[in-house]
Simulated assay, not measured.
Amino acid sequence: MSRPTTPADLGEDPLALERQVCFALSVASRNVIALYRPLLEPMRLTHPQYLVMLALWERTPRSVKDLSAVLHAEPATLSPLLKRLESVGYLTRGRSNADERLLAVDLTEQGRELRAEAEKIPHRIVERLGMELSELEQLNSVLTRVIAATRRTDLDTALPE
């Protein structure tokens, strides 16, 4: 049962572009990802591939199903990323020994070694943004709550009335 809420006061013009959360998130996302591009290019990574590598540096091997869940991405979206990462020698894909129904993704030695170079990236991004680390941590926390809220909303809309 949901609790009753009072409508939020959205001001005189609820459609003002600068007040839209979707607009701010879209522009911020594009701009932040653009900061990563020159740092990732020497590593032969795109930003989506970098996210896959981050998940694999946390734990490997991982199933495609697990990667899909942790990255909030469809397996069909991950497939071309994984193929590209395999073609540059950063990972391997094969059937899981524990469960042959699962496709396991594992880092190669080259993929493991790439982590040392990647460890420089977060520091350089913080420098380029010119913001306090505490602000960025707070932003990350708020965005994580937004992600959770949108996932709850997805579940709510999927339920029959």
Rank of each mutant, 00 (worst) to 15 (best):
M1G: 15
E18D: 15
E86M: 08
E58G: 10
A73L: 05
T92Y: 00
T77W: 08
L51Y: 05
R145M: 04
Y50F: 15
T153L: 14
L129I: 14
P4W: 04
D13P: 05
E127M: 03
A28T: 15
E117N: 11
I33L: 02
V126E: 10
R95I: 00
L143C: 14
R112V: 10
L155M: 12
M53P: 00
L54Q: 07
V64A: 01
E12Y: 13
E161L: 09
E161R: 09
V70L: 09
E74A: 15
L39R: 06
Y36N: 08
V21R: 08
V52M: 03
T5K: 14
T144C: 06
R62W: 00
L51E: 13
D66L: 04
V21C: 14
E12A: 15
G11M: 08
P42S: 04
S2G: 13
L85Q: 00
M1R: 13
L17W: 13
L71F: 07
V27W: 09
I33P: 00
P42L: 11
V27L: 04
K120H: 12
P80T: 07
S2E: 14
E12W: 07
R59Y: 11
G130A: 06
L40Y: 08
S29G: 14
L67S: 02
P14I: 10
P48C: 07
L67P: 02
Y36E: 08
E18G: 08
R44E: 15
D99H: 13
S134T: 09
G94H: 00
T92A: 07
A28H: 09
T6Y: 11
L81A: 12
H123V: 02
T5D: 12
S2Q: 13
E74D: 15
E12I: 10
N97S: 11
R62K: 09
L143N: 11
D66E: 14
A69C: 04
V27A: 13
E109S: 08
L91V: 01
A8F: 12
P38Q: 09
R37L: 06
R59I: 03
E117A: 09
L71Q: 12
P61R: 07
G11N: 04
T92D: 01
R59M: 11
P160F: 01
R30F: 03
P160R: 03
A55W: 02
V146M: 12
K120P: 00
V27Q: 03
E135W: 05
V21N: 11
R115G: 03
D13N: 15
D99L: 06
A76Q: 04
T5W: 12
R124L: 11
P61F: 02
V21L: 15
S96D: 00
V88R: 09
V146Q: 10
Y36M: 10
P4K: 05
C22G: 14
R19I: 07
L155R: 14
L114P: 00
A34L: 01
R145V: 01
P75H: 04
D156C: 13
P4F: 06
S63T: 06
C22M: 12
Q138I: 08
R152M: 12
D13W: 04
P80H: 06
L107F: 09
P122H: 03
T46K: 01
D99C: 06
K83M: 11
D106I: 01
E41H: 05
S26F: 13
G94D: 05
L56P: 00
E12R: 13
A158N: 14
D154S: 15
L81P: 01
L78C: 02
S141F: 09
